[in-house]
Nucleic acid binder design. Structure first.
Length: 470
RNA sequence: GCCCCCAUCGUCUAGCCCGGUCUAGGACACCGCCCUUUCAAGGCGGAGAUCGCGGGUUCGAAUCCCGCUGGGGGUGCCA
């Protein structure tokens, strides 16, 4: 059975790059009817926080990535300690008493000489007596893994193919810190092995870590999983996508009114494309069916907020069914303070306006005229007003509207009549109405507003503007 | 510095494995026209890539091989 995992560390909000890694791991597992595991990598007690963990979980669920098993590494320290002990006993690891300062100095010297830095292996040759002596003196120590010399560690990456790295490129690395907590390269192996992970899917920044981990698998006699290293996601300037590129966390997009299905869809298409298909809109189910690691690209992709926005708009205006759209948009309207007791009314509004905004946050602005009667007239709109003309137009509209139904159709008729009788341009009529109804120069169609909003409210707004311009 | 990875329109990509059908296809963005009370949406059309560069191999290369350049990542008692 295929078992994959997503293993984030809760030291920040879920980054788009990590989100995509999670998505690919999830799709791969589901495609093969396998298991998807969520494992919180919080071995760095200093930087990990509960808040980040909670947000991470929310983001994952929001994206629709449910997991079959859940683990937290901070709760498994006993297990890691046992295996670290075992590695020492088997002679694959040893205590190292070098202080951070000493190591920093070594590193500095290497840098000056222009040679690649590797840990000297000083403590590797300590005798048992020396070790006991130093321990009894209470000198803090880490545990390092003994890396064999001049050995090519090779693996077949599911995305990139053959990768070979020589052990001389890295020195003996720390697997247990001096405070007793285990490090990433060590725990990742223990957990992946113990949890039966068959496919390790992660970012390409982990390629250099892979040989270290393979060495540990071998030392412990664990079966080695398959590896698939995803290309990174880049910002507009082609450097690794990071905070300075603006909104890069899933949380940002969730709060900005993006649709999770659109987010999932877009992220999938960054670095992956299904064979032969020309289309770009896919349901989660289709993605599960189509996804295959062999179709993942090897080159890094630039994240385009523009395209994501476009896709989000497609989901808003045509993919989502109306009821779902209502559910998604309601929290946004409510938190903006709109009174939306009538779901039918909202449905009517959305039916006619869903093609005029790209995010749910934008919808808040766009839909204001349907919910709020009290609004300011924008400065641009005031400047546009030629009071006398507007007064005549609106007065006549009011008169004509009084004794008939207001609909998209009838308002057009009224506009036409007014236009003729006062000998004004169509544009004058419509923009006068628009300002009266919305306070703005642009927005959704005035006919739509008249058609949707109860007649009294339309008339009241017109009267109000008339009073203002007298 | 050293190691690893990558390289098709501005961007995401198809094609590359199994050379000819590629005068390189699609999408976003851009431009124009149509529709139209505004903004959109929609329809139609346009511009945009000598397939990073240089060598091979071949009758023929985006596709195979080598070198170079450029970009990215790693080089922690972070993950």
């Amino acid at each position: 059975m295929v078992i994959t995992r997503f293993a984030p560390s809760p030291t920040g909000y879920l980054h788009l790059g990590n989100a995509r890694t999670a998505i690919f791991s999830y799709l791969f597992a589901r495609h093969h009817n396998g298991k998807f595991i969520l494992r919180i990598e919080d071995t760095d007690l200093e930087r990990s926080t509960k808040e980040f963990e909670e947000t991470l979980i929310q983001d994952l669920l929001w994206l629709g990535l449910e997991w079959d098993e859940f683990y937290r590494q901070s709760e498994r320290f006993d297990i890691y300690r046992r295996y670290a002990q075992k590695l020492v006993e088997l002679g694959y690891a040893y205590p190292c008493f070098c202080s951070p300062e000493e190591l920093e100095e070594e590193r500095q010297r290497a840098l000056e000489k222009g040679v690649a830095y590797r840990y000297s292996g000083k403590c590797r040759v300590l005798s048992e007596e020396e070790v006991e002596h130093l321990k009894s003196m209470g000198k803090p120590y880490t545990i390092r893994f003994k890396v064999p010399q001049s050995q090519d560690v090779v693996f077949e990456d599911l995305i990139r193919g053959h990768i070979s790295i020589n052990t001389d490129d890295f020195g003996d690395f720390v697997i247990v810190r001096s405070d007793g907590t285990p490090t990433y390269n060590f725990v990742v192996v223990i957990d992946d092995a113990l949890m039966g992970i068959t496919h390790v899917i992660r970012g390409e920044d982990h390629i250099p870590n892979t040989p270290k981990q393979i060495l540990i698998y071998r030392a412990l006699g664990f079966p080695i999983p398959q590896f698939a290293h995803l290309p990174v996601i880049l910002g507009e300037d082609r450097s690794k996508l990071s905070k300075r590129h603006g909104a890069v966390s899933v949380k940002n997009y969730r709060e900005d009114g993006y649709i999770p299905e659109a987010m999932l869809n877009y992220l999938c298409l960054l670095g992956w494309s299904p064979p032969q298909e020309g289309r770009e809109i896919y349901t989660k189910q289709e993605l599960v069916e189509l996804f295959d690691l062999k179709d993942v690209n090897t080159s890094p992709a630039v994240f385009s907020k523009e395209k994501l926005k476009w896709m989000n708009a497609v989901y808003i205006r045509q993919v989502l069914d109306l009821e779902t759209l209502i559910d998604r948009i309601l929290p946004f309207l409510e938190s903006a303070g709109y009174q939306v007791e009538d779901r039918n009314y909202l449905r009517k509004v959305l039916e006619r306006t869903r093609d005029s905004f790209e995010t749910l946050k934008e919808a808040v602005e766009r839909l204001r005229p349907f919910f709020v009667d009290e609004f300011e007239i924008s400065e641009d709109a005031w400047n546009q007003l030629e009071n006398e003309k507007v007064y005549q137009i609106l007065t006549l509209v009011l008169e004509k509207a009084k004794d008939r139904e207001l609909s998209a159709q009838s308002i057009k008729e009224i506009a036409k009549e007014v236009q003729k009788e006062l000998n004004v341009k169509a544009k004058d009529v419509w923009s006068s109405l628009r300002i009266a109804l919305t306070g703005q120069l642009e927005g959704v169609g005035v006919d739509i507003i008249c058609d949707t909003l109860p007649k009294e409210r339309v008339l009241k707004r017109i009267e109000k503007l008339l009073q203002k311009i007298v």
